[in-house]
Amino acid sequence: MITVMIVDDEALVRTGLRLILEPAGDIELIAEASDGRQAVDLVRTRSIDVVLMDIRMPGTNGIAALEELTALARPPQVIMLTTFDLDSHIRRALRAGAAGFLLKDASPDELINAIRTVATGDAILAPSVTRRLIADFADHDDAGESSARKRLEPLSPRERDVASAVSRGLSNAEIGRQLRMTETTVKAHVSRSLAKLNLSNRVQLALLAHQAGDPGKS
């Protein structure tokens, strides 16, 4: 069972999300919060796998709460919710380790699939909003590309191949087919890469590999 918390200052939004999640047999909504401070306090006392976090809230906003959550010893996966597909705060959320992003008008199926995806340690890279964010976030100047390539040097050639595929928004299954390896092997390469690079999740790996251009190049 995937345990979930909803964090949004609007009661109607929380109610709508609750109604979407209740029919999903493998998802259990165990907590709700109206601001970031309350959310962090709840995570400290409960076992929560995935947090649906609104970005814009009064008091402790979603970004500040995300930064506190990702600093915990066992942080939950956090999906940021926004009404804007290129919210100005999302760059900070990417740096802080958000597992993905969803627009508040996402379909029920998109929301449920997103929760299931991040609960497995994967990230939400497929939606067009995140692809555009990656392209918008990456610094394409020579210095930025050089710095990113240097950061990727600890990776093995195969890990660089996987990182490059991750930056293109491919799923583990797609990467496996392309590189002729099992999904389990792909996940292992991603996990080792995150550990070597001291990154929080797949989104950050995608950003770094995207910034480096082709990580397989010397």
Rank of each mutant, 00 (worst) to 15 (best):
G176E: 12
H140E: 04
E174P: 07
T117Y: 04
A206P: 07
I27K: 06
M1Q: 13
S171R: 06
A126Y: 09
V203G: 05
D35S: 04
P58L: 11
K196T: 12
M80C: 06
A39R: 12
I115W: 09
T15E: 10
R149H: 07
F137Y: 13
M5D: 08
D41G: 03
S193T: 10
P75S: 06
V78L: 04
L197F: 13
T184C: 03
R177Y: 05
G169P: 11
E10W: 12
V203Q: 10
L52W: 08
E22I: 15
A143Y: 01
S107I: 04
L102Y: 11
I112T: 14
D85P: 01
R177D: 11
L69G: 02
I55C: 06
T15Q: 06
S34Q: 14
R56Q: 15
R202S: 12
R151T: 05
I112D: 11
P58H: 06
S156W: 03
I20P: 14
D49A: 12
I2M: 14
K196F: 14
G36S: 10
L12E: 15
L125V: 08
V190M: 07
V7D: 14
P23F: 04
H89W: 04
L102V: 13
M5C: 13
D139P: 00
V203W: 14
S47R: 09
Q211E: 10
S167F: 03
L81H: 05
A73D: 04
K187P: 02
A33I: 01
E174A: 14
S156M: 02
I112Q: 12
E174W: 03
A93R: 14
N198H: 14
T70V: 12
A138I: 11
T184E: 05
A24S: 12
L125C: 01
L19P: 03
D161K: 15
D9G: 10
R131W: 02
I90G: 00
K150R: 05
L179E: 05
A39M: 07
S171L: 06
R92F: 02
A173C: 02
H140I: 01
R14Q: 10
G62R: 13
M1C: 09
A33L: 07
L19C: 06
V203T: 13
R192C: 09
V7L: 15
L81T: 04
R151E: 08
Q211D: 03
M57C: 08
S200T: 13
G36W: 01
S156Y: 02
A148I: 04
G59Q: 15
A99K: 10
V43H: 09
V186P: 05
R149N: 08
S200D: 15
R91Q: 04
G216M: 07
R177S: 05
E67F: 03
A173M: 12
V118M: 04
R95K: 13
L170A: 10
A24M: 05
L111N: 07
L86H: 03
D9M: 08
M80A: 07
R74T: 03
I6R: 10
S128V: 05
N61L: 06
P154Q: 13
L102K: 07
G62C: 11
I112A: 13
V162C: 06
L199V: 10
L94Q: 06
T117C: 10
R132S: 02
L197S: 05
S147Q: 09
S88W: 00
A165N: 04
V129D: 03
L152G: 00
